[in-house]
Amino acid sequence: NQASVVANQLIPISTALTLVMMRSEVVTPVGIPAEDIPRLVSMTVNRAVPLGTTLMPDMVKGYA
């Protein structure tokens, strides 16, 4: 089972991601792979991401 990136807090729309905002967790459905966390830092989300939500590729500008 692959770990995915999960929001560690509410991430408001257009917020630049930082390490403290994300954690890795094995979830269903599978989202962005946890090993991509370093790549996600400073990318922005294009929607509000509630606490505990799995980050999907279409939620992060420039990721997909």
Results as ranks from 00 to 15, higher is better:
residue 25 E to M: 09
residue 35 E to H: 12
residue 48 A to S: 15
residue 46 N to Y: 09
residue 31 G to A: 03
residue 17 L to A: 00
residue 41 V to R: 05
residue 41 V to I: 15
residue 29 P to V: 06
residue 52 G to N: 13
residue 28 T to W: 07
residue 48 A to I: 13
residue 7 A to E: 01
residue 37 I to Q: 04
residue 64 A to N: 14
residue 19 L to W: 11
residue 29 P to N: 04
residue 43 M to I: 03
residue 10 L to H: 13
residue 2 Q to A: 13
residue 18 T to M: 06
residue 64 A to C: 15
residue 42 S to L: 08
residue 50 P to Y: 11
residue 40 L to V: 05
residue 26 V to I: 12
residue 9 Q to R: 13
residue 63 Y to M: 05
residue 48 A to D: 15
residue 45 V to T: 13
residue 29 P to T: 07
residue 36 D to Y: 10
residue 28 T to R: 04
residue 31 G to Q: 03
residue 17 L to K: 00
residue 18 T to G: 05
residue 50 P to F: 06
residue 4 S to I: 02
residue 24 S to H: 12
residue 2 Q to R: 05
residue 64 A to H: 14
residue 20 V to N: 12
residue 35 E to K: 07
residue 51 L to M: 15
residue 15 T to Q: 10
residue 30 V to P: 10
residue 35 E to W: 10
residue 56 M to L: 09
residue 34 A to N: 07
residue 29 P to H: 05
residue 28 T to P: 01
residue 45 V to N: 02
residue 57 P to Y: 06
residue 52 G to D: 14
residue 3 A to D: 06
residue 26 V to C: 10
residue 1 N to Q: 15
residue 30 V to N: 11
residue 56 M to P: 01
residue 38 P to V: 13
residue 32 I to W: 02
residue 52 G to V: 03
residue 33 P to G: 05
residue 47 R to E: 12
residue 39 R to A: 08
residue 14 S to W: 14
residue 54 T to I: 09
residue 14 S to H: 14
residue 60 V to A: 02
residue 17 L to W: 02
residue 44 T to D: 04
residue 5 V to T: 08
residue 42 S to T: 13
residue 30 V to Y: 08
residue 16 A to N: 08
residue 19 L to T: 09
residue 51 L to G: 13
residue 51 L to E: 15
residue 53 T to S: 10
residue 49 V to I: 13
residue 61 K to R: 12
residue 48 A to W: 08
residue 13 I to N: 13
residue 39 R to I: 09
residue 55 L to K: 01
residue 30 V to M: 12
residue 64 A to Y: 05
residue 3 A to L: 10
residue 33 P to K: 09
residue 25 E to W: 05
residue 32 I to E: 02
residue 11 I to S: 02
residue 23 R to N: 09
residue 36 D to Q: 12
residue 16 A to Q: 09
residue 52 G to C: 04
residue 33 P to N: 08
residue 46 N to T: 13
residue 29 P to S: 04
residue 62 G to K: 06
residue 29 P to I: 06
residue 40 L to T: 01
residue 26 V to P: 11
residue 57 P to V: 06
residue 1 N to L: 15
residue 54 T to S: 04
residue 24 S to L: 05
residue 56 M to C: 10
residue 3 A to S: 10
residue 59 M to I: 06
residue 61 K to V: 15
residue 4 S to E: 01
residue 8 N to E: 08
residue 43 M to L: 15
residue 34 A to H: 07
residue 13 I to E: 15
residue 55 L to N: 01
residue 14 S to N: 15
residue 60 V to G: 02
residue 15 T to V: 12
residue 50 P to T: 09
residue 51 L to K: 13
residue 63 Y to K: 03
residue 12 P to W: 04
residue 20 V to H: 14
residue 46 N to K: 11
residue 31 G to D: 01
residue 45 V to Y: 00
residue 61 K to Y: 10
residue 27 V to M: 07
residue 15 T to Y: 08
residue 59 M to L: 04
residue 7 A to N: 01
residue 50 P to R: 08
residue 15 T to A: 13
residue 28 T to A: 15
residue 19 L to S: 11
residue 13 I to H: 12
residue 1 N to E: 15
residue 17 L to R: 00
residue 29 P to W: 04
residue 10 L to T: 10
residue 35 E to T: 13
residue 11 I to V: 06
residue 62 G to Q: 09
residue 36 D to G: 07
residue 21 M to N: 12
residue 53 T to L: 09
residue 20 V to L: 11
residue 30 V to C: 07
residue 39 R to W: 15
